Amino acid sequence: MKEYFNEDGHLTDIALYDLLDELPDELERLEIAEHLSFCDHCTERYTALLCDDALLSSPEPLKTNVLQRIRQRARVIFLNRYVAAGAAACFTMILWTSGAFRVDMQISDDRPFEKLTVMTENFTEKTAEFGQNVSDEINKFFTSFDLKGVLNHEKK
């Protein structure tokens, strides 16, 4: 019977080569397999025998690309949040200064629903007027260009 273990408890080279050639009997293979299941040093030596190929290194460092993509995504999220909040604030200020939220106090207090109806109608009219003005200006802007991106009113 061959000695498959050193004095320090690790597998010998003979045990590893015999395991490759399937020479040990069932009980010895089980002992070797049990040792390989918890000994990283012997497992590393055995896998080095199994594959003679050298490990390839990555063609480019991945850490910098991943970090750049994370930073880019953070910038996009930051920009989207604050642009949306800024646009909402601008829209609110435009509506506020145009008088859409102005409350007309000249209606008598004995008819609160009439007051609410008038305020709603005023708000609806002002927002519709504002939306129509914005739509008209956008249409004017886009109709001033032809398909080549040159202004229509410019002379060549």
Rank of each mutant, 00 (worst) to 15 (best):
G86K: 07
C51F: 02
P61N: 14
C51Q: 10
L79T: 12
A84K: 05
K63F: 07
N65W: 07
F101S: 14
A54S: 11
V103E: 13
Q68C: 06
S58H: 14
C90D: 05
N80S: 08
L79G: 06
N80P: 00
L67K: 13
I94H: 02
F101G: 07
L79R: 13
A84W: 03
L56K: 15
V66Y: 09
S108I: 02
M93G: 11
A87C: 05
I94T: 08
L67Q: 14
F91H: 15
P61D: 15
L56W: 09
L79Q: 12
T64G: 03
S98T: 04
T92R: 15
T92A: 13
G99C: 04
I77K: 01
Q106M: 07
V76N: 15
E60C: 04
I77H: 01
T64H: 05
L67W: 05
L50F: 02
A100P: 01
R102P: 00
I70S: 14
V66W: 08
P59S: 14
Y82T: 09
A85Y: 06
L95R: 06
C90N: 10
R69T: 12
S58Q: 15
Q72K: 14
L62Y: 06
D104Y: 04
V66F: 07
A100Q: 06
D53V: 03
S98M: 05
L50S: 03
L62D: 10
E60F: 04
M93R: 15
D52W: 00
R73F: 02
D104P: 00
N65M: 05
R81K: 09
C51K: 08
S98R: 09
A74Q: 08
R81Y: 03
F78V: 04
L50D: 04
L62S: 10
P61I: 12
A84I: 03
M105Y: 11
M93L: 09
R71S: 13
K63E: 08
L79C: 09
S98C: 02
E60Q: 07
K63G: 05
D104S: 03
R69Q: 11
E60V: 09
